[in-house]
Design a protein around this nucleic acid. Structure first.
Length: 668
RNA sequence: GCCAUCGUAGCUCAGUUGGCAGAGCAGCUGAUUUGUAAUCAGCAGGUCGGGGGAUCGAACCCCUCCGAUGGCUCCA
């Protein structure tokens, strides 16, 4: 997708001077030494420069950024009281926030028309470099812009302002050279937000839109969006009768119907198989615990408002588990462990309950109860690398098997050392030399032994854990992105994302190192010298949650799951009642051979039966009538609506192979 | 939790300025005996999300609670 062009540029000349007319049409900016420039900027050094094509990833981002400005330009022309705040672009779309009276999508045509008009004028988008005071003067009527200017520009420094006709924008750029580059855009939706995401601050109108270099790719994008809507797992789940929500009696809690339970169980069984192969032992832990365990683990402190906590009539406090680790830890604690037993790995399809706020729920992707393919490994420090490597090998194996060759990306989430208060870390007291662990804001920090406030942070555990994750990723040759500040409060982690058929990224697996839960629960094992040593805990989930993963699969496959996961693998329908007997025989034969079969003995015509059955997305629809009965065959219709005749045995053998090999391809 | 939109039969949805609650599909009964995306007819199905209010009169207007959707915030 990166079609950018490298050209030699000379210091003192404008970037645009190096482009011929042909190139000028498709080049929107220039990058030199990693810094993006407008085409009208003057080069400050001779050498190679990368000219950004409008169709490249960076080019599209610039186009969308400029389209957001075009939107703001149109909005202030139509609504002079509107005060633009900021824009952002991501994932094919952009948005712009305005302080203005609420509008609705009915107002979009007028705004789009105005944008169209400004685009047609082909206004140059000019950069002006001004000193801070002049910029503040320009935006004195817009408090959001003045905030931004004060945040980003130091006294006596200058910064850039872009001029587009009468419209001015405080912005770093770069931008497309003129509004004429903006040829295919559409406003998509509207929502409300608060200034700086703070609910106590000014309410804002957020307008979403998208922009493409040409009409054709815009149209394709809109079609894909529509397709994604049709593939919503809630809709498919309803059509295939997989799960329900009883909103009055259990909001946010999915119920699996018989069909849905089949998918869930197949996934659980498959994980069980892989866990066994990789040395993970199955355990089972309770769903309800006394509150004390959540205080020990530290979850209570941080998440008590998001937990289901309750009190019995005798005054005892209990809570539903929001995490499985304390349960696994309790099992680990049942006995003294030798260094020879390590690593000890417990896994469980562990169901957890979290009180998600009402507005945060959504189908199976964000329910209040979900089941994690959870695992906790208790390791010696010298076993970390090997264990992480073993898990990182499971990840592509599983997703490539289930979803076909999939694009998998890895993120390494590390701590942000400038905010130690967000993490549980070690401190050394400079007065009494006591080492202890805590998570606290700097003004609450004091030595647990002597009360001194002269403490030194010790990041060595974090650094060690992070290095282990990095080396495992590097050794397997997996490219990864580092996200400082995204670590869990107890340790760094690797998160895994997969891309689905509609080009969307989903977070699935997570592998987290934890040096602190062992401290909280005072865990240890006995080493060769008879000393007590702290183990390291590794938390892992490969699918993530079954609920979420089922949602991903349904949308990825449009409900047409691989046969091994299909609730209905064969749907048998007789041409008329006269062949019910043969249909029943076929159905029984399939069942005997562990193929999930259904039988339709209704009086509907065969066309109508197929019409109704299709929404169930069975792997195969089997039609039988006179011919089949006479020859002992079946007429099989696959998911691409092609039909083929098989003998019953042939079909069973082929489908059995398809199911057992977890094949994503059908037998024909 | 915040903002916006919404809640009518098992499902998908009509219901005009407030004036007798509708359709299609599914279900049941009967006729039809069907060859690959809807055969015909009949029957049944509802406290219009719950509660309160203004009105002669409310699915429709007002208040409130519950829930859903799209965003925001959050996501161990």
């Amino acid at each position: 997708m990166n079609s950018n062009i490298i050209l030699k540029v000379e210091k003192g000349r404008k970037y645009s001077e190096f482009l011929d007319n042909n190139l000028k049409r498709n080049i929107v900016a220039c990058k030199q030494k990693g810094i993006l420039h407008d085409l009208l900027d003057v080069c400050d050094a001779s050498g190679d420069a990368e000219f950004i094509e409008i169709t490249s990833e960076e080019g599209l981002k610039i186009l969308r950024h400029s389209t957001a400005h075009l939107l703001a330009n149109a909005v202030v022309e139509l609504y002079p009281d509107a005060k633009p705040n900021t824009s952002n672009e991501d994932n094919n779309t952009f948005y712009y926030d305005f302080d203005m009276n609420p509008i609705s999508i009915d107002d979009f045509p007028a705004i789009e028309k105005k944008m169209e008009e400004i685009a047609k004028r082909n206004e140059p988008i000019e950069k002006m470099v001004l000193d801070k005071n002049s910029i503040l003067e320009l935006f004195k009527n817009n408090p959001y812009k003045t905030d931004k200017i004060n945040e980003n520009v130091r006294e006596n420094e200058s910064s850039s302002v872009y001029k587009e006709g009468n419209y001015m924008e405080f912005c770093r750029g770069p931008h497309v050279p003129s509004t004429g580059f903006i040829k295919a855009f559409k406003l998509l939706s509207i929502s409300s937000t608060n200034y700086e995401g703070d609910i106590n601050k000014q309410k804002m109108v957020r307008i979403y839109g998208t922009s493409f270099p040409d009409k054709k790719s815009l149209k394709e994008f809109l079609l894909r969006k529509e397709e994604a809507m049709k593939r919503d797992h809630r809709r498919i789940g309803h059509e295939m009768d997989l799960f329900i929500f009883d909103n009055e009696r259990a909001p946010g809690f999915p119920f699996y119907t018989p069909n849905g339970a089949i998918i869930r169980n197949e996934l659980i069984n498959y994980m069980k198989e892989l866990n066994e192969k990789n040395g993970w032992e199955d355990v089972w832990t309770p769903h309800v615990y006394k509150e004390i365990i959540w205080r020990e683990s530290g979850h209570y402190d941080k998440y008590k408002n998001d937990m289901f906590l309750f009190q019995l009539s005798n005054g005892d406090h209990y809570g539903l588990k929001p995490m499985n680790c304390p349960g696994h830890i309790a099992i680990f604690q049942r006995d003294v462990h030798s260094y020879r037993e390590m690593p000890i790995r417990y896994s469980e399809a562990g169901t957890v309950y979290r009180y998600e706020k009402s507005g945060e729920m959504g189908g199976l992707t964000r329910p209040r109860v979900f089941t994690i393919d959870d695992g906790h490994g208790f390791l010696r420090a010298d076993q970390i690398s090997e264990e992480v490597t073993s898990l990182l090998k499971m990840v592509p194996f599983i997703f490539n098997t289930i979803m076909g060759d999939s694009e998998i990306s890895y993120d390494l989430s590390t701590m942000d050392k400038s905010h130690p208060e967000n993490y549980l870390i070690s401190y050394m007291c400079l007065e009494c030399n006591q080492k202890f662990e805590m998570r606290a804001a700097s003004d609450e920090l004091k030595c647990q032994n002597c009360g001194s406030t002269s403490l030194k942070e010790d990041f060595s555990m974090w650094d060690n854990a992070t290095e282990n994750l990095k080396s495992a990723l590097n050794n397997l040759g997996l490219p990864y992105k580092e996200n400082p500040g995204d670590a869990a409060f107890y340790g760094p982690k690797v998160d895994v994302h997969i891309r689905d058929a509609l080009d969307r990224l989903w977070q699935v697996s997570t592998i987290q190192l934890d040096f602190f839960m062992p401290i909280n629960f005072d865990l240890n094992y006995i080493d060769a010298d008879g000393q007590k040593i702290r183990p390291v805990i590794i938390h892992r989930a490969i699918y993530g949650s079954y609920e979420r993963f089922i949602a991903i699969l349904l949308e990825h496959f449009n409900g047409k799951l691989p046969a091994w996961l299909s609730p209905v693998q064969a749907y048998v329908i007789p041409v008329s009642e006269n062949y019910s007997g043969y249909a029943e025989y076929v159905h029984r034969e399939l069942g005997k051979n562990h193929i999930r079969s259904r039988l339709d003995l209704s009086q509907n015509t065969i066309s109508k039966k197929i019409k109704l059955i299709r929404s169930m997305r069975p792997s195969y629809i089997i039609v039988v009538g006179e011919n089949e009965k006479n020859n002992g065959t079946i007429s099989v219709r696959n998911r691409s609506d092609r039909t083929k005749t098989y003998t019953i045995n042939d079909f069973i053998n082929n489908v059995d192979k398809e199911i057992r090999s977890h094949n994503i391809k059908q037998i024909f």
